[in-house]
Amino acid sequence: MAYDTALTVFSPDGHLFQVEYAEEAVRRGIPVVGVRSKKLVLIAYGRQTTPELQDPRTIRKVYNIDEHIFMAFSGLNADARVLSNEARLEAQSHRLNLDDPPTVEMIARHVAYTQQKYTQSGGRRPFGVSTLLAGIDPNGTPRLFHTQPSGIYNEWVATAIGGKSDDIRELLEAEYEQVAESEPESIEETKKLFGELAIKALDKGAHCDDIGIVAVYAQNGKPVVEHVSKDIIDALVKIVEEKKREQEEKARQSLIL
């Protein structure tokens, strides 16, 4: 019997193949990196190269969910749009019903819940999307969540989704602590420091010509979702490339010696 046709049927060894195929769709997606510090969360993503005659502005990798939360994804673009809409609706209905902004975890849980729903009944197909939900809780704490097509969600300090995410996570595991220990006072400097780490991690996955960074932090008690300017990103990319070249040079020198 083919265990990969009907969604709701388990294979004898306990797998739901359709869900695993959805996870494969994510693995083939463009990598996205999320990093959290004490003051902010930041997400770096690579943009696809667009055909020459296409308007690149119509391609969105990140969606704003509320004033204090945004979502980045890897996987099927169209599925992500449906999920982001679901999350936006939940955010506003939370505000309407409870007169309070939702926490990032509430939104992550809702997105994961929606993804899970699509794995358990007939006539549906799972979302081919993993999301990173980044934001500032109403009390000012930065949070970073990851959701999967199966409906699993976890909180992270730094993680990656999409292609080569294992390699990227390995780099983050090796370098995060050192960067986090030297977190500067100012938001501007923190943004640059963690932006550099995120770009370096992203570069480990795939070389991207066009990188976007979004950061969320609290300013005067109010959440700010900032699309980091191209100038700052270009400067950071230059630093990362410079350091990479230096390291390669050092490696070559030691080889000669």
Binding site: N85, R88, A91, Q92
Partner: peptide
Amino acid sequence: EANIKLFGLR
């Protein structure tokens, strides 16, 4: 208020 915010986000 909530709906107009939602439309703005969408």
